[in-house]
């Protein structure tokens, strides 16, 4: 007859073996799952329009950091004032972690269109990094709306003319013309809705 102590010991060993073979739960400290990321996609609060960006740049807002995610060759040819270059293919390398995973600056990703910038945004969002946004329409839209704004048709509502006048002023500011009217003399572009900074947990292993 087996002694009770042997039965208990075997029971614990068996339980240990079963526990070790069970599928492990992923460590989801900050990472988002598909459902949470879909929610972020749908609310669209991480979208920065070209008018928002022009306003932020004219105000010399120190809290924003422009991140050009295009290849280096395109960045060298032309980029937005003050932008740094983190090409999409090197986005997740360790050297950029300090820029992307922080709670001091509001990063605004941009590219020629919105394809590369929004892909960069999706990747960092999935990793749970806060304070990352993207420029809707990218440089193509920046040039067609801010640098070379088109006058609205004469029967357009007054609101469209106000936006146009603001854009003309912004264009003159960015292209460096000295006869520019004071920036922001038209209706100021609305500030983008920025999410509150997430407080990072201090200490622990990284």
């Amino acid at each position: 007859m087996l002694k009770p102590i042997w039965i208990i010991a075997t029971l614990f060993l068996g339980l240990g073996a079963i526990s070790a073979m069970l599928p492990q739960k992923k460590n989801r400290y900050l990472e988002r799952n598909a459902e949470e990321l879909l929610r972020d996609v749908l609310v669209q609060e991480y979208v920065v329009t070209t008018d928002d960006l022009a306003h932020l740049l004219i105000q010399k807002d120190p809290s924003i950091l422009l991140i050009d995610v295009r290849p280096e060759a395109e960045y060298k040819k032309y980029s937005l004032p003050g932008a740094i270059n983190i090409p999409l293919d090197s986005l997740l390398s360790d050297q950029w972690g300090g820029y992307l995973d922080q709670d001091l600056k509001r990063n605004i990703f941009f590219s020629n269109g919105t394809t590369l910038s929004v892909q960069a945004w999706m990747l960092v969002k999935q990793k749970g990094y806060a304070n990352n946004y993207f420029l809707k329409g990218g440089l193509n839209n920046w040039f067609s709306t801010i640098i070379e704004p088109k006058e609205p048709p004469s029967d357009a509502p007054e609101k469209d003319f106000r936006i146009y006048r603001t854009r003309v002023a912004a264009s003159q500011y960015f292209t460096g013309k000295t006869d520019a009217p004071a920036p922001g003399s038209g209706t100021a572009a609305p500030l983008p809705k920025m999410k509150k900074k997430k407080k990072m947990v201090q200490g622990g292993c990284s």
């Binding site: 269109g113 919105t114 193509n140 067609s144």
Partner: peptide
Amino acid sequence: DEKPQVDFA
């Protein structure tokens, strides 16, 4: 989408 519509520089 990512094709530049003008030569920015």
